[in-house]
Amino acid sequence: MSTPVLELSGISKRFGAVQALDQVDLRVAPGEVVALLGDNGAGKSTLVKVIAGVNPADGGDITWEGRPVSITRPNDAQKLGIATIYQDLALCDNLDIVANLFLGAEHTAFGTLDEVEMERRAQELLDSLSVSIPSLRVPVASLSGGQRQIIAIARSLLGDPKIVLLDEPTAALGVAQTAQVLDLIERLRDKGLGVILISHNMADVRAVADRAVVLRLGRNAGDFRVEDTSYEEIVAAITGAADNPVARRSGRVSAATTEEA
């Protein structure tokens, strides 16, 4: 496997008495989709915030393309090439697609907005993602949930990131719209970007992810190649079914009986 773009090792984060992350490892290679799975409170969002620089880690190392870096502010993450798309998307409903894509990074010519250039680049960007949207000049409020998600992802690509973090991109979407977002994730992978996908939907994870990293109670609870792993194994890792007193005891009992036999 090629060198990972982003590698986290031994990441810890504590909020007062709560150890939210405890020695967590994660790596993402170029052109790889890594699903980050875990129950509520497992530490997924905290880990995302560590990577995005919103909530820096207390301890642990972050390497970017082989060299150690520190991410203490969202700016650091952006400069490295990490784009994060949160669940609320942060789109301006009243502005059109072009304005949303270039929000805060507007192109200007002779002191005024260069709408023509921005529209051309927006069209180019959406074409490169094989996204077809009838008009780029409609307000974002009129788009479907899936299209809004796609616009939010497309906006993050303008900064030429190497890693895209998606927090529950398919929650609350219909089947056809979810399919569009999954298509887009496949295209990001084809372009050689690393994708970290947080999702609760196992079908979505199995449809696009290469690896599934499971967090449980702030610790690594498994790292699976999705192709070779059954649904049940991943769910067992998420729920801790393989790691509880009952399972351990039955393991001991069966081990003991095999010894006797």
């Binding site: 089947v175 056809a176 979810t178 399919a179 999954l182 298509d183 079908a203 979505d204 199995r206």
Partner: peptide, 22 residues
């Protein structure tokens, strides 16, 4: 769903499994 099935059989099958599960 709309999907470019012709492009790659493996991916087509993978997405079909997703659709069935959904």
């Amino acid at each position: 769903i709309a999907y470019d099935v012709a492009a790659d059989p493996e991916r087509g099958v993978r997405r079909a499994v997703w659709l069935v599960e959904t």
